[in-house]
Write a protein that binds this DNA or RNA. Structure first.
Lengths: 223, 223, 223, 223
DNA sequence: CATGAATGAGCATTCATTCAT
DNA sequence: GATGAATGAATGCTCATTCAT
């Protein structure tokens, strides 16, 4: 849990407990006022221990952001891991995964915004470390898509790209809330619309499909 | 150009010129170290005039961010406005617009990241003002989609949502550069892949439609 | 008028006119926000000419305060000079003078407060120069008291001290407005009360005294 | 002691000690150059701790002025409280109080000037709070006068106004030092002269006096 | 004589971090 | 292990004043 964040304190359990408190408090404050406008004093003030003690469990303000980001990502990954549905059909699996991630995004709307905004304050290495958690989510989609392609249900698309698209099209819900308001304010409706579009976009064209396919049909849609 | 940012200096031309210098310097520094880690002293140091003079052209640090954001958005909007393609077919028009915006995103990759990250530091009203420039881009896509739906080329999707998707699927190029690297490093290839997916996703399925449906018809989707 | 404040501009009339404008504006602003919280830019902004021009008629911000103080004192002195009543009796003269100065103090209540507060920002020499105008007022009282003593109407008090007391007992009206509110809010009533007290305080207790009264008693209470 | 000025530091004793240092230094500097020309850096420089530490004991520059003013007033009030003489006769009591307050004024001559000058920089509420300490002094005089009136020793004057006059006539010593120099440079002589004048001003006129009273008593008011 | 523009020096305040106990 | 106190370094911003034109 405390990956890459060294401590002076030896009692691992204590460290975990205190850090958990710090993370909770910091997450709340970061969401309220952003990372830069939250002083480390603000955080300490809301903790049951004092500023100097706080520094026994984290080495710097950046550490706290890292911890917060990690926890957020872990929570998201955990939630997504549960989904890893074993639906028979790729279409159903894809739809289910999309729906599940949309729900997660909905739940963590402000947190995702926070991550997009403040991750830049992390050292590159750590930023990467945090981002890598995304691959749990991407992986879920990627696997489904890959299976769909194998089964000829999906067209010959890049599974990784589609997985990223799926991820990102869910993130839209958290990143452009305002712009989406006139369309729908119900994340489930949003989920259905988005997954339908993306799914349609990758479905194999029946009898004969595009991509290297030999279409006898005269009029190609994209010709 | 300097909408909503008042000055003490009277010579409008000079204001424009100095502000341009400030914006350039600030953009560079913001890109390098972010808004919060760039002090107004840093900006002034990189300007051919001093700190106090800088304050003759802007009223606050936030003003500078606003100016920077505005210019970025204006440049993007201007570049996109030129595109407003008069392609006959919606498919071509959509593809062209997507390609154009991808190119813009590619050019402004770091800037877009900057906007997503730092716009939160702006007062809500100003944030909205900046964001509203996005509607120029969204509008281009929306119009094309709407036309496509009228012509029965596109399915009955929400034009606005699709426009947002198009926009956001282009932004993916700037927001997840690292994750995209294994897929492609060529923004044009990226553009083609993405537009194909999204386009496919909104094309009208002729007689019979998707999802478990058995389409016999070979008739072109655009017919 | 422009005593001790040198200029670069030669046209004396112009200097007088411009300075008058400066003084008016500055007086208003000083009264509103105090000397230190009024920037020279604030003053220039409220003048029909610009900041650099302002510096052609005064040499520094302190000069302006000096000019303002001088004008205030001059106005007060002028108003008091008119009073210089030629009343026959010292008692009547004293009462009249007191009443007159109270009226002036009432009119210039905020200005007097301003002078007491901000004169400290003046160079000692200038502060003295301004204060010396007070001697016009003091002189009026002093002369009356001196005459009264000669005429054995007033006791053998120090005329200068009494004059200062008279002055200062009037200033009470401007300096402790709040504390005086429960006593009276009418400056004329205040004037009567104060002058009666002070007058009583300096009247000769002799066999025969002032004010129509015929006292037979020779015993002086303070003898 | 530190009424209305919150701290971060918990050790109350330390707060008191440090604040005392700050107040001493600040008082000295304010007396030398005034509140506005004294920077908080100046104060910190003369303290045995640094600028940031200073801010652990006060919240703002205004706080320091408030603290300084409070201490001054407290000292004055404490000195005056001791006086609260139980003299039998009102005349003696009045004279004693006047002498005592003159002594205090003499001791705090520059400080009183400071208060008259800089209290304007305080927020109204705080200004009132400081000024209210004056009522300790005023109260002493008022009580004496009231008692004197009851005993028919003093005329039917407004006790509050007379108390204010007494206060203010003592302040004359600090506010117009220069003007008083030709009269006397001895504050005790000043005190005697002033109290004699004011006392005379409020003494009941024996048998027949003004103010509608008909007193037959011949006993000297000072007996 | 007028003025637009410029600037050096300064201001009050805050912050992340570190010790001594 | 805990904590109260301390601090160096910065930060955003303002001001009185001066010049080149």
């Amino acid at each position: 849990m405390s990956r890459r964040v060294p401590t002076i304190v030896k009692n691992a359990e204590l460290v975990a407990q205190r850090r958990s408190e710090i993370i909770d408090v910091a997450t709340r404050l970061f969401l309220e006022r952003g990372f830069h406008k939250t002083s480390i004093r603000d955080i300490a003030r809301a903790c049951p221990f004092n500023l100097a003690s706080l520094y026994m469990y984290v080495g710097s303000k950046e550490d706290i952001l890292f911890l917060v980001a990690q926890q957020l990502m872990d929570e998201k990954a955990a939630a997504m891991a549960e989904v890893e549905t074993l639906h028979e059909g790729p279409v159903e699996a894809f739809t289910a995964a999309f729906r599940a991630y949309c729900q997660i995004v909905h739940k963590f709307r402000p947190h995702i915004r926070l991550l997009y905004q403040e991750l830049g304050a992390l050292a590159p290495e750590r930023r990467e470390s945090v981002m890598s958690s995304l691959y749990t989510v991407i992986g879920v989609f990627e696997k489904i898509v890959r299976r769909g392609i194998e089964k000829r249900v999906f067209a010959d698309v890049d599974p990784r790209l589609v997985a990223l698209d799926a991820l990102f099209m869910c993130h839209l819900w958290s990143m452009h809330t305002r712009a989406l308001r006139p369309i729908t304010t119900d994340y489930q409706a949003f989920s259905e619309m988005q997954s339908k579009i993306l799914l349609q976009g990758i479905l194999a064209r029946k009898p004969a499909t595009h991509r290297r396919s030999k279409k006898r049909k005269a009029k190609s849609p994209m010709a």
